[in-house]
Nucleic acid binder design. Sequence first.
DNA 1: ACCTTATGACAACACCGTTGACCTGTGAAG
DNA 2: CTTCACAGGTCAACGGTGTTGTCATAAGGT
Lengths: 239, 239
Amino acid sequence: MTDRVVPAADRQRRRPTKQGVVLSAELIVETALRLIEEHGADALSVRRLGRALGADPSSLYRYFRHTDDLMLAIADELIGRTLRVWRPTGDWRADLRDLGLRMHTGALAHPRAAMLSAHRVTGRVHEIQAVESMIGVLRRAGFPDPEAVRIYHAFVDQALAFGALDSAVTALPRAAQQAEAEVWRDTYARLPADTHPNIAATARHLVASMRTSSYPAALDLLLTAAQTRLDHIRAQTEG
Amino acid sequence: MTDRVVPAADRQRRRPTKQGVVLSAELIVETALRLIEEHGADALSVRRLGRALGADPSSLYRYFRHTDDLMLAIADELIGRTLRVWRPTGDWRADLRDLGLRMHTGALAHPRAAMLSAHRVTGRVHEIQAVESMIGVLRRAGFPDPEAVRIYHAFVDQALAFGALDSAVTALPRAAQQAEAEVWRDTYARLPADTHPNIAATARHLVASMRTSSYPAALDLLLTAAQTRLDHIRAQTEG
DNA sequence: ACCTTATGACAACACCGTTGACCTGTGAAG
DNA sequence: CTTCACAGGTCAACGGTGTTGTCATAAGGT
């Protein structure tokens, strides 16, 4: 077999499956996303997806080389949805903050998909658009090219990494999730001051903080550091 | 079957396998870690682990309820190893930097375990020790309690999130991993300047940067922002 | 109306985690 | 010593997985 996949653009023979469904890459991706959200990340298998579509599992290999290919298509679709609602204003720091928060909440809206795709490079249209936009924001802000790339890399990976981490938490079974919250209240908050002075002194803040994601804080720290760097660069070029 | 697992402490009948190996939870964990290190993350399956140990795969279910159980045992072992080699010096920034990098490389040394445990709160001794140490470092540096907790939370989640993210990349099949590297060279680096000016202008830096983890950069940005915050706080309390 | 061929279907392969039933050596009790 | 309960190793099987070689057929261009 050389390659059973035909590029989406070249497809024309829209032949329905036995159950009357007309397949397409888009339909497959949509169905996969629905499957993941409704029945969990483990619900995504070629066979189950085929069943959900009303098609033989092997038919999907006419559209995607292998499951990994499909994962990338799903990831790109998610990127596209996030980017589509982002409206940059020209204020680099506010724009990046907005985008970061959107990426994070976007991931949390599809936790299982986010967990499976956060670490993938798709090289597809939506991702390319996103990269172009982000680097553009940084360069227009005045960051020299190497610095812009460095900060872009850290920024995007941090958004994806926290998105996946926080998604993993929400994907935990209800019981396990509640149990983890209780560990902070019942274990950490009760440690005696003589053996664990620092935890005891900050217990109240710990319990409060650990209930929520630290991503907004981490994002602000990253942007603050970038701002510092930018001020430094501007001072140098002026002086 | 009620439960085929017997607590490690209660075990006494040390019966060798057909191939003469005497099993134990420790031996299984060690062998699993070796397997991951030597043959990649996807080399770890119950069947392969059984083969590597010289035992029937189903024997392992006498020691661990299921694979997840085994993964957690492995993760627990890793936390211990990381913390055991950390020696704080008193310089808060250097100490946190050192710990962050150790956590990250510790995760990368055993990607599968890192991916499964990054988002879990164990409440066990090693974890508690780590929390106490980190918050202690920040408080001694002069951060007020709410600020110390905020930065601790962002710091530890960042280390865990990047550890898991980068682990996921290395856990990818060889082929997929190489394919991703090629996307930057063959797709991004070849985009024309008229449609994607920002990517075209920074292509060289992008290809170089994307080859490596952005965690060190992200960590330094976080620490820089923390330093800025600390300077600000000190100026206020002095003035 | 014909012919090509894209595309769907089928069957098979080699793997996976997990479990119920079985067998046997171990170690303690008599 | 011998006995004997049973921990712990083994076997075979189940239902799942991704993937591929082969075949059948309907769609579309000529």
